[in-house]
Amino acid sequence: MSKSLLVISRQAPWSGPSAREALDIVLAGGAFDLPIGLLFMDDGVFQLAPGQDAKAVQQKDLSANLQALGLFGIDDVFACSHSLTERGLTPPASAQPMDSAAISQLIDRYDQVITL
């Protein structure tokens, strides 16, 4: 049986390639049909904010990659509710909100974790 991997993405979307490179790990795992989960936490939840304009900073639109998650078989997408509340964001439709206790159990459930 394949080992499961949880990727915790903590980077804001326009702070360099980090957020994109975290997503790339997730998408690559999905392409190999591996059981992958994705949790947005801390500034990573800004990736889920509505109405972003990547063109304003001449960047590629990250939301296209986010929308591709489903196509790559990544259905386990979560968002830290503490981080959302702290930043005045409402829970997005694309990610399941989780409180700290649930995140603790989530980390427990996966075989491996990469937090970046």
Binding site: S2, L5, L34, L116
Partner: peptide, 20 residues
């Protein structure tokens, strides 16, 4: 090589350890 090699290694290993 590509990111597939990271997943392949993680699958083959008992532990995945990240440094950064």
């Amino acid at each position: 090589s590509g990111l597939g090699q990271l997943h392949d290694a993680a699958q083959a290993a008992d532990r995945l350890i990240c440094f950064g």
